[in-house]
Every structure is written in structure tokens, then in C-alpha cells.
Design a protein around this nucleic acid. Structure first.
Length: 593
RNA sequence: GGUCCGGUAGCUCAGUUGGAUAGAGCAGCAGCCUUCUAAGCUGCGGGUCGUGGGUUCGAACCCCGCCCGGAUCACCA
């Protein structure tokens, strides 16, 4: 790594000059701004106190000494307190020669002895997946891939919420107004069950309105509406293992899973383990009783069990209802312990929206109070909501952007754009369809992942996602351009991966090499920050740089064959890095487009 | 009300964890195709980094106050 080389050179120069060690926390190298000559810049201001000399003097002395000691440093210049160091071109050319055929370039060279479990998606089975789930799924999947690339052992898990009152609502509605299988209704299973859930809600509202008009209070009406009573009855039957209820429940869930599977598949996400809440919802009660017996929790007169977190700056938290049934927190305590004691991970990452920050704060604190050492490995990857121009998505107001619909629209737009540009003329129907899919999904994934996960992001359905500028298709297009060059070179029998004997680089080539050089560092940063956005932004940066190079230096018009192969090699490495980076954010790269 | 998160160009977003004169894309305007793919490239205009203080050689970034927006504080999940 360049930074560690320079860091060593700096320490050596510093100790030689001043007979003392520099404070490591003050040593900061950064990329030199383009308006100055140099590759890396050392900020020397922090050392003025220790040395009692002007920043310019220190910078000059250190620059001189580093130049003397290290052959990789070619020149230096000093602007105010900034020491700009120019590396010898041989550094970049060596990098090129060494990695030209390194197919795993960018990924960690040695495995880390650490296991990370990452949970994402975690849908309810009463609603189809929507735009918010898309962000969740893409983020979780991508972070998992990035962590793998960093050498971690990663297990992707999904906890499906397949039981509870909401499922019973869909079941009641289906019995009353549905009675059709997905095939009969010509609907995806998750869509059918989702429609039943909506129907229940509508009918329930009518009942409540009727009761209120008859003089009931709103609260009582909501509690006593016949439909609500039936749903609760059904939940009790379910918990009592009633055969008929369980039968219907598993049939309808089966429809939903088939629907989810097709959405996941289209989106390109997968899981190593799928947990079902119906199988885990009783876990956790034992933990609550354990905490009660250790006097960490308290039981109230009505029988409910609580954890007092006021000393931690939070509130009292319910852990078990007065009737002895679980709440969300109870189950999460249980599933966390289940994972910790069966998979033995060093970290457990939960990809869950920031609306649940409080929940995860509580989860960690409660587990720590219970003395679970592994609780410190729990990490909430808290991402921001996706908002529409009119604000949050609301299922009841029909402003939800459906995941399947969105993907289909993206693919249709890709088709239209491609045909308009006349780029599919030479493709077979099959090739063309797979290209539209690749572009449409590339556009969607890049759009979702280029934004910092923590931030709330805006999605405007009417403007649809762009294909020009800072977009997935722009990057894919760049890749396709390079592949076209490679094919042309192969036809002309020019090696695309020839080491070079050149001694110098030109500006655009060097900028590209510098960017390529930074790729492993980007992958590492993205892993540490759990941020696919860093990879996405890097890909854009690299593509932009390549397109400038492409436009400025026509490769096959170059007479000097050494220079020509060098440029082909750089192009080839660029395409490879784009492809590798693409695998980290789930964006495929086309050969032609 | 308490707690947490956010506010950067007309719009969507970056800003390497405190460094140099704050950057991209879109939208607008003006150029570049007898072509290694124009889904591209070049140029122009566009900013009180919400606001007021503080910390220091240096702040969009750290601290405090205020304004605005969001989330959360359920015997919901």
C-alpha cells in the first residue's frame, strides 16, 4: 500500500532530521489536489508545535530527506503547510504489471478468521415486497458480498414473519371473499394474500363506522367489530394448533413464499438460512424468566414483565404481556440467542430501518444486563427510509411502489431506450431480453445503492430512473465499450494483458492507474463502513475517468505498439475492476450494449 | 415534551472521518459523430454548506444555543 510506504519513509526522515519520533496520530496522507503536482500530500501543520519551526521549513526538510532516502519518490513541492509528493512512474507501472493478470484484484488476499451473520429482508407474509424492501434487500445482500470480499465468513439470514394477527386478517378475508387460488385469480401468491389483507382492512373500517354511528366509542368499536373478534379467535386457534386453521395458514403462506421467491430471484438476492417466526416465536420467554429470577426484570401486579431502563436514559420496556404471550422484543431476544449459540458469530448485523433504532438499543442493553457477552457483537445497520415526492409510502393510500412492478418498469424502460438507440438490432430476442433485464436492474440497483445507507433517500416514480450521467447504465456502457476494444484487439492478435516495459505514463493513463490502485482500499472502506455506496461511487469515478481517456487517446490510432498494448492493458484491467465491483453491488456488466 | 437522525447548487446526491479556492450528475445554454459504441466527451452559468456563537494554524465535518424536517418513546411488528 502506498500510504504505508510513505508513512515509513516519513517516519524515517523525521527521526533522522529531528532525533525524535513523530506522533502517529498527526501523520495524515491524502490524495494531492489536481491543481498541484504530486500524488500524495502530507499535512505538516500538526508538527509545528513539537518542532517550533514554520510549516514551510519542516515540509521542505522532510521532503528533501524523503527524496534522498526513497527512490520511489521522484519530486516534491511545498505549498504552505502541505508537502506534495510525486511518485516515480515506475511505482504505477509496477502496480500495473503486477496486477494485470490478478483476477481477484480488489479482494482481501487472506481470509479473516471471523464469522458475520447478517439478517436482512425479514418480510411479513401479508404484504408483497415494495420499494422499501428493495433498499433493505439490496443493502443487506451487497454488504454481505462486500464483507465476503474482505475475507470474512458471512452467513446471510432471513427471518420471515409468518404468524400473528396480520396473517389471520388475510386468512379471514380469504375465507369470506377470496376462495380462489393464485392460479384461479391469475395473481402472484403474495399479491393475492396482500389483496386479502387490504380487503379485510376496508371491511373492518366499514364495520367500525357502523358501530360508531350506532353510538359506540371509536375505541370500543375497533375492539369489538365482528371481523376483529374473528381475527383474534383465529389467532387463538392457530396457537392452539387447530388443524383446519393451520392448514389454511400453511397453504396461504405457501403462496406468499412462491411469490417472494420470484421477487428475490429477479432482484438477485439470496439467503443461506431462512428462519420462520412460527418456529421461533416462543424462544425468548425462557430468557425473560431467567432475568426475572435474577431480579434484572420486574413483574407487575397484572403479571406483565418489564425491564427498567430509565438508568440507561431509556424507558421501561415490556418483555412479556400480562397474559404471558410474547412481544416483538421477547422474540428478538430469543432469536439472537439462538443464532449466537448455534452459529457462534463474532458479529450479528441486522439490516433494519432507522425507525427501529430504539428497539435495537434496548435489545443490546437488555442482553448485556443478562450477561450475554456476545451482545456487544450485535450491530444495527440502520438505513434511511425511501420517500416519495408526496412523503412516506402509505399502503392504505395506495402510494406503495411495488417491487415487481418497479423492476418490470425498469426493464421496459431499458428495452425502449435500447431500441430507440438502435442497439438491439443485431441481437437475438433472447440476448436482447437478457440485456434489457441487465440494464433495467443495473439502473435500479445503482440508484438505490449509490446513496449513503444511513440517509433518507428520495424516489420519484414519475421521473423514472435515468440512464445517463451518474447511473448504472453509464457504468455498464463503459464496460461494454472496453469489451469492444478487447474483442478488436483479440481479432488483431494483440495481447490484451501484456506487461509493459514503458518507463513513463501520461496523465490520463496515470489517473486511471491511480484509481485502479485504490480499489482494494475502497473495498475495505466499504466493508468497514457497511456502505455499498462507496463501491458505487468508485465505479462511477472510474467510468468517468475511463471515458475521458477513451475519448482523448484513440487506442488503435496509436502507432507506438508498446504504448498501444499498455493502453489496452489498462482498459482490460479497468473492465475487470468494474466487473468485480459490480459483483459487490449486484450489478452485472454487459459485453455489448 | 424526552431521546435519536438529518438540513451542502433549481432537483438528486458526493465530500476520503479536521486540511488547500466545497464537488458530481440531472435540468438549462453552447460545441464535438465519413465512429476503438454519442447510454459518450468538451465548455458556460449556478453556493451565506439551515442559523448564531465556540474550539484552533485550519471547520461542511468537532462542541453549545436556536430554526426547520423526519423517526421514536405501544400489553403493534
Amino acid at each position: 500500500m502506498l500510504e504505508s510506504i510513505l508513512n515509513e519513509a516519513f517516519i524515517s526522515a523525521y527521526t533522522h532530521l529531528y532525533q525524535q519520533q513523530p506522533e502517529q496520530k498527526f501523520v495524515s496522507f491524502q490524495k494531492t489536489r489536481t491543481e498541484f503536482e504530486g500524488d500524495m500530500t502530507l499535512v505538516v501543520f500538526p508538527f509545528t508545535k513539537q518542532l517550533h519551526q514554520s510549516p514551510e521549513k519542516i515540509a521542505n526538510e522532510i521532503g528533501q530527506q524523503m527524496l534522498l532516502e526513497n527512490a520511489l519518490i521522484k519530486r516534491f513541492n511545498v505549498v504552505k503547510g502541505f508537502l506534495n509528493l510525486l511518485m516515480d512512474d515506475s511505482y504505477w507501472i509496477d502496480f500495473y504489471n503486477q496486477n494485470l493478470e490478478n483476477l481477484t484484484f480488489g479482494k482481501a488476499t487472506a481470509p479473516k478468521n471471523e464469522h458475520i451473520v447478517i439478517e436482512y429482508s425479514s418480510p411479513n407474509t401479508n404484504k408483497p415486497l415494495h420499494l422499501g424492501h428493495i433498499r433493505n434487500n439490496l443493502l443487506g445482500w451487497s454488504v454481505a458480498e462486500i464483507l465476503k470480499a474482505n475475507g470474512y465468513k458471512v452467513t446471510k439470514v432471513n427471518l420471515v414473519n409468518d404468524r400473528g394477527i396480520h396473517i389471520c386478517k388475510s386468512m379471514i378475508a380469504w375465507q369470506k371473499w377470496g376462495k380462489q387460488t393464485p392460479e384461479e385469480a391469475d395473481l402472484k401468491g403474495d399479491k393475492l394474500v396482500g389483496a386479502m389483507y387490504v380487503r379485510f382492512d376496508q371491511e373492518l373500517k366499514k364495520e367500525i363506522a357502523t358501530l360508531v354511528s350506532e353510538g359506540e366509542t371509536q375505541e370500543n368499536a375497533a375492539k369489538n367489530a365482528p371481523l376483529m373478534v374473528q381475527a383474534q379467535q383465529m389467532l387463538r386457534k392457530w396457537e392452539a394448533n387447530d388443524t383446519e386453521t393451520k392448514q389454511l395458514w400453511s397453504t396461504m403462506n405457501g403462496w406468499v413464499y412462491a411469490g417472494f421467491d420470484s421477487t428475490y430471484k429477479k432482484l438477485g438476492v439470496d439467503f443461506d438460512i431462512i428462519y420462520y417466526e412460527s418456529e421461533t416465536y416462543l424462544l425468548g420467554k425462557a430468557i425473560v424468566f431467567e432475568g426475572l429470577s435474577k431480579n434484572i426484570f420486574v413483574k407487575k401486579p397484572d403479571g406483565s414483565i418489564w425491564c427498567d431502563l430509565t438508568a440507561d436514559g431509556l424507558d421501561e420496556k415490556l418483555l412479556l404481556r400480562s397474559d404471558g404471550t410474547s412481544v416483538y422484543m421477547t422474540q428478538d431476544l430469543g432469536t439472537a440467542e439462538q443464532r449466537a449459540t448455534s452459529l457462534y458469530p463474532q458479529k450479528m448485523i441486522y439490516v433494519v430501518g432507522n425507525e427501529q433504532n430504539y428497539h435495537f438499543d434496548v435489545l443490546k442493553i437488555v442482553l448485556k444486563k443478562l450477561g450475554r457477552e456476545w451482545a456487544s457483537g450485535i450491530e444495527h445497520l440502520s438505513y434511511g427510509m425511501v420517500e416519495l415526492p408526496e412523503g412516506k409510502m402509505k399502503s392504505r393510500e395506495g402510494t406503495v411502489v411495488d417491487a415487481d412492478d418497479l423492476m418490470d418498469e425498469m426493464i421496459a424502460t431499458a428495452k425502449l431506450t435500447t431500441e430507440t438507440l438502435g442497439k438491439s438490432d443485431e441481437l437475438s430476442e433472447k440476448e436482447a431480453d437478457s440485456l434489457y433485464r441487465l440494464i433495467g436492474l443495473g439502473a435500479l440497483k445503482y440508484f438505490m445503492l449509490k446513496v449513503d445507507p444511513k440517509k433518507t433517500m428520495m424516489f420519484n416514480p414519475t421521473e423514472s430512473i435515468d440512464f445517463n450521467g451518474n447511473t448504472g447504465p453509464f457504468i455498464q456502457y463503459t464496460h461494454a465499450r472496453i469489451r469492444s476494444i478487447i474483442r478488436k484487439a483479440q481479432l488483431a492478435n494483440i495481447s490484451t494483458k501484456a506487461k509493459t516495459t514503458l518507463k513513463e505514463t501520461q496523465p490520463k493513463e496515470k489517473s486511471l492507474l491511480k484509481l485502479l490502485h485504490s480499489f482494494p482500499n475502497i473495498v475495505e472502506q466499504a466493508g468497514e463502513n457497511r456502505s455499498p455506496a462507496l463501491v458505487a461511487n468508485f465505479m462511477f469515478e472510474l467510468s468517468k475517468e475511463f471515458n475521458q481517456f477513451y475519448q482523448a487517446s484513440p487506442i488503435f490510432k496509436e502507432d507506438d505498439s508498446d504504448l498501444r498494448s499498455f493502453r489496452i492493458g489498462i482498459s482490460s484491467l479497468t473492465a475487470q475492476v468494474l466487473k468485480t465491483a459490480g459483483t459487490l453491488i449486484g450489478m452485472e456488466m454487459p459485453e455489448k450494449m
